[in-house]
Computed example of a mutant assay.
Amino acid sequence: MSTSEIATVLAWHDALSTADLDTLVSLSSDDIEIGDAAGAAQGHAALREWAQRVTGPVEVGDIYYRDGVVVVEERFASGTTASAFRVVHDHITSAFRHDDLAAALAATDMADEDLQA
């Protein structure tokens, strides 16, 4: 387990939940790619625009980790999703939202043995 990568993702979620865009950006690489099934965008400006559309806090559920990739179950007031993050040198380089945890795990080839306690 890499506590560094997981800690970065948890701090990113804290910043997202509190709409602290400056911290969110500081935890992200300059060329961060952020996306979902509808498409992707790149860079800090795209991250800020995406984050401003998030309403309310996000609660982190189960966390999976392998080789610099962290998958997090996310609970919003509007429902549950999951995101896959690539973390390099304590900066998130990509964040991709999936419809559910099963889809995020399938996309990253993770399984139950990658679940962090």
Rank of each mutant, 00 (worst) to 15 (best):
T8K: 04
T8L: 03
V9K: 02
V9D: 07
L10D: 09
W12G: 04
S17K: 04
T18F: 07
A19M: 10
L21N: 09
D22I: 03
T23P: 10
S26A: 12
L27Q: 00
L27F: 02
S29C: 08
D30K: 07
D31S: 10
D31M: 05
I32Y: 02
E33K: 12
E33S: 11
G35Y: 04
D36R: 03
A37W: 11
A38R: 08
G39Y: 02
G39A: 03
A40Y: 06
H44V: 03
A45E: 06
A46I: 03
L47M: 09
L47T: 06
L47Q: 04
E49C: 10
Q52R: 15
Q52F: 08
Q52W: 11
R53K: 15
T55R: 14
G56A: 01
E59Q: 15
V60Q: 05
D62P: 02
I63T: 10
I63R: 11
D67Y: 09
D67L: 06
V69P: 02
V69D: 05
V69K: 12
V69N: 08
V71A: 03
V71I: 01
V72M: 12
V72S: 14
E73A: 10
E73W: 02
F76T: 01
S78A: 13
G79S: 01
G79R: 04
T80P: 13
T81R: 15
T81A: 15
A82L: 07
S83A: 14
S83V: 02
V87N: 11
V88N: 09
H89E: 13
H91G: 07
H91D: 11
R97D: 11
R97K: 14
R97E: 14
H98N: 13
D99S: 15
D100E: 00
A102P: 00
A102R: 09
A103Q: 14
A104V: 12
A106M: 13
A106Q: 15
T108P: 11
D109M: 15
D112G: 02
D112Q: 09
E113S: 05
E113N: 07
D114P: 01
D114C: 00
D114E: 03
D114F: 00
L115S: 00
Q116F: 01
Q116S: 01
A117F: 06
